[in-house]
Amino acid sequence: MMLALSGASVDGSLYTDVVDLARRSPAWFDDTVSVWSAYGLAVFAVLMAAGWWRARRVDAASAVTALAVPVVVVLAYVVNSLVKLAVHEVRPCRTLHAVTLEACPAPTDWSFPSNHAAIAAAAAVALFFVSRRLGVIAVVAAVAMALSRVWVGAHYPHDVLAGLAAGALVAFVVMKVLVRRPQELARRIAATRLRPLLVS
C-alpha cells in the first residue's frame, strides 16, 4: 500500500526556518556543511574499517562482529528504501519551492525517511558493538549528518529523525542477534578462504 505523506504539514515551517538561516549564514560554513552532507558517509566507512582492523587483533569472534557492521548498514539502507517507496513523500524543496544549498533531487527521489540518516545511525549503533569509542564518534557524526541534510534543504526534520530511528533499530536488533553466536560464525568463516579477515 502506498501512502502520501504531506511533510509540509508536519514541520514545514521549521524546515523553512532552517533553510532561510542557511541562506544567511557565512559561505564558508555552508560550504563545509554541504561537503559533509555529500561526502560525510565516507567517514563511517573509515570507522568500520578501523573497527575491523582492531577487532581482528583481539580474536576471531570480535572480527566477525566488526565484519557484520557493513552488512547491517546495507540491510538498514534496504529497509529504509522500502519505507521510502511505500510513503512517497515529495521533497520539501519541491513542495515548499525553497531555495536550498543542494540542488533539489528528482521528483521521484522521495524524502521520507532520510537514507543518509539511516545509514549513519545504523553504522553508529553497530559500531558500539565493536568499540565504545568508535561508537561515540560515529554517533556524533550521525547527528551531524542528519542535521546537515536539513541544512542543505534535502529533507524535513522529521525525515532525518525517522531515518535515524530506522537505522538505529535495524542495527540494534541485528547486532543483538549476532553477538549471541559470534564464535560459531567465526568457526564457519575460518574454514573458508575468508579466514584472513578474522586473524591478523
Score class of each variant (00 low, 15 high):
residue 118 A to D: 01
residue 90 V to T: 15
residue 88 H to W: 12
residue 132 R to Q: 14
residue 144 A to F: 10
residue 144 A to G: 13
residue 86 A to L: 13
residue 93 C to G: 02
residue 198 L to F: 13
residue 142 A to M: 10
residue 124 A to Q: 05
residue 77 Y to S: 15
residue 70 P to V: 09
residue 183 Q to S: 14
residue 98 A to N: 03
residue 80 N to L: 07
residue 106 A to N: 05
residue 142 A to R: 07
residue 167 G to W: 11
residue 173 V to L: 15
residue 161 L to G: 04
residue 171 A to L: 11
residue 116 H to R: 03
residue 83 V to G: 06
residue 65 T to G: 05
residue 173 V to P: 04
residue 189 I to G: 07
residue 98 A to P: 05
residue 178 L to F: 12
residue 184 E to D: 15
residue 97 H to M: 09
residue 125 V to Y: 15
residue 96 L to K: 02
residue 161 L to P: 03
residue 66 A to F: 06
residue 117 A to H: 00
residue 145 M to E: 07
residue 196 P to T: 10
residue 123 A to E: 03
residue 172 F to N: 11
residue 139 V to G: 08
residue 126 A to D: 07
residue 81 S to A: 14
residue 71 V to N: 03
residue 154 A to D: 03
residue 122 A to E: 12
residue 112 F to L: 02
residue 146 A to L: 08
residue 155 H to L: 03
residue 98 A to V: 09
residue 125 V to F: 15
residue 91 R to A: 07
residue 172 F to Y: 15
residue 172 F to P: 01
residue 85 L to C: 06
residue 118 A to K: 01
residue 101 L to W: 02
residue 168 A to N: 09
residue 145 M to Y: 03
residue 187 R to K: 14
residue 130 V to G: 03
residue 192 T to L: 13
residue 141 A to F: 12
residue 97 H to I: 06
residue 81 S to T: 13
residue 167 G to Q: 06
residue 83 V to M: 08
residue 93 C to K: 00
residue 80 N to V: 12
residue 168 A to M: 09
residue 159 D to M: 03
residue 145 M to C: 03
residue 116 H to S: 07
residue 124 A to Y: 11
residue 164 L to T: 12
residue 125 V to W: 15
residue 126 A to P: 05
residue 127 L to S: 11
residue 180 R to V: 15
residue 109 D to E: 09
residue 68 A to D: 05
residue 88 H to L: 10
residue 163 G to P: 01
residue 106 A to Q: 07
residue 162 A to F: 01
residue 138 A to S: 11
residue 109 D to N: 09
residue 105 P to M: 04
residue 179 V to W: 13
residue 188 R to Y: 06
residue 151 W to A: 05
residue 79 V to L: 08
residue 169 L to G: 13
residue 196 P to C: 13
residue 155 H to V: 06
residue 154 A to Y: 00
residue 85 L to T: 05
residue 176 K to V: 14
residue 158 H to W: 09
residue 100 T to I: 10
residue 113 P to Y: 01
residue 153 G to D: 02
residue 93 C to I: 08
residue 166 A to G: 06
residue 163 G to K: 04
residue 84 K to L: 05
residue 136 V to N: 08
residue 187 R to E: 13
residue 81 S to M: 11
residue 169 L to C: 14
residue 112 F to P: 00
residue 79 V to P: 02
residue 192 T to K: 10
residue 108 T to E: 14
